[in-house]
Design a protein around this nucleic acid. Structure first.
Lengths: 123, 123
DNA sequence: GTGGGTTATGCCACATTGAGCATAGCGGGG
DNA sequence: CCCCGCTATGCTCAATGTGGCATAACCCAC
């Protein structure tokens, strides 16, 4: 996994991440990206391959999200055309949209904090 | 696997957390609270006791923050009056202030997301 | 009815993390 | 001079997370 080895003059840039904690689970950029891939790829396996994680893990992430929300964010079909597949529910699509909106709204504040960090490290 | 919450009456309220990732370390509410306690209690041990964590761990958290920032956020004194102690540096105080400001600015967006979550779980 | 690709799950090995315990060094106060 | 509380740090053990197989069930297409 390419953890970028720091070039002394460009230390890995600091960044900010937001996580939504809900009923024993936490949804952050990782699970949201997984949902995006499920939507575009049409299945959990394909999404897992795209993200470079095992199907086992991707499935588990989906499962925990589904139970955390009480209602499914992803619905699956086993067997059939193409072997089966998975799609986002309306709830799943809303989740992505709302998470994206949150990130867009916090961006200015995050940028200010990161600017301060860069300043302090420079001196 | 349907893991139902133990107490249907009070479903742990969803919440949002922001983490600042900086040089292999991540600073979130936990480390910020630790800094606050160090400031008010005057030492790492006292702060650790207040937070219900071991001194070992609290010290480690402080140590990783100090190296992540390049400059110390906490300065310590060993031996002497009261056995020693720890204080925030100006950088440490700025960190708390900036983190608090970030959270304050994020609050409206976070509240909207959480409201949506509550809505979806209610139906 | 056989095959292929997918969902659904269990099991085991390994890495990471935090807890708990132990110890050493420090220096002002009694 | 010795004690006490605190900083500093190492080591071990338990819990948890992830990765990598392995397997079963499913169902459309051929």
């Amino acid at each position: 996994m390419g953890r970028r080895k720091a070039n002394p003059d460009s230390p890995a840039a600091p960044y900010v991440r937001v996580k939504l904690h809900i009923a024993e689970d936490a949804v952050g950029p990782g699970k949201i990206d997984l949902l995006r891939f499920i939507e575009t790829e049409g299945g959990i396996s394909a999404a897992a391959r795209r993200m470079g994680v095992t199907y086992r893990r991707a499935w588990h992430l989906v499962d925990t999200m589904n139970s955390a929300f009480g209602n499914p964010v992803v619905e699956t079909a086993v067997g059939g055309d193409g072997g089966g597949g998975a799609r986002l529910t309306p709830l799943g699509r809303e989740l992505i949209a709302n998470y994206d909106e949150l990130n867009a709204r916090i961006e200015p504040a995050a940028r200010d904090l990161l600017e301060w960090v860069e300043q302090t490290r420079a001196r």
